[in-house]
Amino acid sequence: MKTESHLEKVLVSGNLAVTSECGPPRGCLPDHVREKGGYLRGVVDAINVTDNQTAMVRMSSLAASVLLKQEGLNPLYQMVTRDRNRLAMQADIIGAYSLGIDTMLCLSGDHTQFGDHPMAANVHDLDSIQLIQMVKAMRDEGKFQGGADIKGPPKMFIGAAANPFADPFELRVLRLAKKVAAGADFIQTQCIFNVDKFEKWMEQVRRRGLHKQVYILAGVTPMKSVGAARYMKNKVPGMDVPQDLVDRMGSVPKEKQPEEGITICIETIDRLKKIEGIAGFHIMAIDWEEKVKEIVDRAGLLPRPQV
């Protein structure tokens, strides 16, 4: 065990881990965070707290994580390299750890162009892999990136993201390998709809033995409607929604579509369970946290192990 992270414990124990996420509110609404966290209590092993997701200003990931921690939940502190340079990031990391946050996810972040501050500078002092490297060095070597010693290093369980569906496809596994080499302990993947393609990716992951070096949590998302399905298929870069799923969503009446989306999500989890090298699931129910429990339940992943 490298850290005190609850997620690490679940993973080390060999159980399929379950994570979900909670987008902080766009305002000073701490109750909002608490409410969302409430839906996930006892349902997941860690809750991702997004960092200015889609480049829109939100309550800081650090603060929201602390709020969840105060509720006795396990936050998974996300950090993007877009908004802060290495000084700010390191400061926040030791700050977070000091406030009891021991699990984090290192990302590069969506481009500002997509958000509500397209005029903002994209910092990108580091990229996500360099961030992983930095966090690992802080934890294992007790060194700041600049080389100075840290008094009391942060013992972070380090996560990274992977998108098996973006291009160039050949690079997707290599990039994973790089992240592993940089020091990622676990991986959360992009939402998986195209299980066939994901399997191909996993095949290559296994060929390289990466699944033995890192815990891979497969990302899934319940679709609320055929419109959402279409949107993800056509508008979200790097998302691969097969046409037959869109058709399937479209084939049921509008009021039944949420139900169908959840069913599809559960079927996906079932299929993913059979793939060698999957260590758990990351359920991204954007603004639909109340349904996560149902999904986890119906997928046979309840109750969550106590470790």
Binding site: S108, G109, Q113, A166, L171
Partner: peptide, 29 residues
């Protein structure tokens, strides 16, 4: 690269194009 990524493409690279615009080549591709 729109994000100055030094270690590979982000998840937004599709068919060789950057997520910010179809007119921008993905540098990593």
């Amino acid at each position: 690269c729109s994000k100055r990524l030094m270690n590979g493409p982000c998840g937004g690279s599709v068919t060789g194009k950057c997520e910010i615009s179809k007119d921008v080549d993905c540098a990593w591709q």
